[in-house]
Amino acid sequence: MSRVYKSFFVAAVMVLILVSAGCAELPPGGESGWSGGLSPDKQGGSGGEDDDPGYLKPATPYPTATSSMAGPTLSKPVETAPTQDPYVTLYNRTTEFSLTHPTDAYSFDLTAPPLIIEFDVEPKMITREKYTTSDYGSKKDIVVKQSYPSEDSWFTVTVRDRESGAIVAEDGFGKRFSTDTDKRVFVGRLGDYLIQFSGNDVKVHILVRAGGV
């Protein structure tokens, strides 16, 4: 009985040795039997099958900002030709009017209205001294100088119809007119006119223009 048991034990040991020797051999081709690696058909690479499902579409990369900045572009301003005076100058003069030279008169046949007469009056100035008491400090007596246009200074522009003598337009400085020194007389209709400048104790710059001659 013991002999049979020993024979069975020896046979079992031999089987275990053979089994162990068979498991130690590497698979053909030198591949390892470790299951932790990726199989060749599942590893990514350029040689594998295209697995892009097509959800992402190719696009242009976003431009990268550069440190250099373009300078401002300077544009040359458009040159504008000076506006020409649409009127013709008939008279442009500075004249002093006084008792010895009270009036100037001119005739003009206006065929291209308007007729524009501009004048700037410089009246004779009167300076007077006024004695008064100061309202400040020690209340001393002081002299105050006052300047104002002479009551004898005046100027008038009169435009008349030459045939009838009727006044077409008129304005001036002093007397029955205001003391504004810069004024304009405007005539807007055709006619043969007498233009008269009259004054006293004034120096006047007069500019007369018309739409044509």
Rank of each mutant, 00 (worst) to 15 (best):
T103M: 13
G36D: 14
V213S: 12
D109K: 06
I142E: 03
Y193R: 00
E151H: 07
A11W: 01
L194N: 07
G137R: 11
G172W: 00
T60Y: 10
D192N: 11
A24H: 07
L18V: 10
K203D: 11
L115K: 00
I116M: 07
I142G: 04
Y91E: 05
V213K: 10
A65P: 10
L38Y: 11
Q146Y: 12
T94P: 07
L190W: 09
S35V: 12
G36M: 08
V88Q: 08
V143H: 00
A112F: 11
V13H: 09
P72Y: 06
L110F: 01
N92G: 04
W34M: 11
S2H: 13
K175I: 07
D41T: 09
V121Y: 04
S107H: 06
P58C: 03
V15Y: 05
E118P: 01
V4R: 14
A105G: 09
A12V: 07
N92K: 04
F177W: 06
G29P: 00
M14Q: 06
V208N: 02
T111C: 08
R3S: 14
A112Q: 15
K139H: 15
S35R: 12
Q84Y: 06
L99V: 09
T89G: 04
P63W: 06
F9L: 13
V204F: 04
P113V: 00
A105N: 09
D52H: 08
H205L: 11
F173W: 03
A24G: 10
D109F: 03
K145S: 14
D201E: 13
P82K: 04
L207T: 14
G36N: 12
A210I: 00
A11E: 02
T80M: 13
